[in-house]
């Protein structure tokens, strides 16, 4: 593809400029591969236990289409704005980077707030993680994703502070690119969550 030839033929964005940068980005891809496997075990547990409701409520009674549709839209859009932030970094536009990354963080926070409200509502309805095997698996899977989003927000904020202080260097550019990869990956996991947990749950 176009992109590969242009990187091998001399031109490289700053995050790929040093060998260290290239290796760390590749290392991050390996980490994401391990994350895929981590989430697959939680998905497997959920699918095995999905019908074990112990006389309690099932997904059909609990999941609210409005809430998870909103969550999906927020996270999907944040993945897009995060991509624009990385693009702004490549164009050396600080304003663009801080603007789009700021929007990404706000959308991520909005997603988290919706998820926390949903969890609180479920616990209030006596449908917390201790209610049934189905709900234990649900809270573990969706909660693990939620923790990843929380960590992502903290990491992105930290990198933003570094960029504020040091500007775009090969090191900060690499970090920006890696936070971008991580954030897109969170949306990848959510795609499978909203499809196979929520949509399949209410259908």
């Amino acid at each position: 593809m176009e992109t590969t030839t242009s990187t091998t033929k001399g031109y490289r964005p700053m995050e790929y400029a040093s060998e260290e940068g290239r290796l760390k980005i590749f290392g991050f891809w390996i980490f994401l591969g391990a994350e895929i496997v981590l989430f697959s075990t939680l998905f497997a547990t959920y699918f095995v236990l999905v019908n074990q409701t112990a006389g309690g409520p099932s997904g059909k009674e609990l999941f609210e289409i409005k809430i998870f549709a909103m969550e999906t839209f927020l996270l999907l859009t944040s993945s897009f704005t995060c991509g624009l932030a990385v693009l702004a970094m490549r164009k050396q536009s600080k304003r663009g980077y801080f603007g789009w990354m700021g929007v990404t963080l706000l959308l991520g926070l909005g997603f988290l707030i919706l998820e926390i409200e949903e969890f609180a509502m479920l616990v209030e309805m006596n449908a917390g993680p201790t209610r049934s095997a189905f709900l234990s698996a649900f809270f573990t899977l969706v909660g693990t994703h939620g923790i990843h989003v929380t960590l992502g927000i903290a990491w992105v904020t930290g990198v933003m502070i570094q960029v504020w202080k040091r500007g775009f260097t090969p090191v900060t550019s690499r970090k920006i690119f890696m936070t971008g990869l991580y954030w897109h990956f969170l949306d990848v996991v959510w795609i499978f969550l909203f499809s196979t947990i929520y949509l399949l749950g209410v259908a």
Partner: peptide
């Protein structure tokens, strides 16, 4: 959707593609 994220957003073919 996974492919869209990998190719359009994550630029999986860049670097050690």
């Amino acid at each position: 959707q996974l492919l869209v994220q990998l190719f359009y957003f994550m630029h999986i073919l860049e670097g050690d593609g």
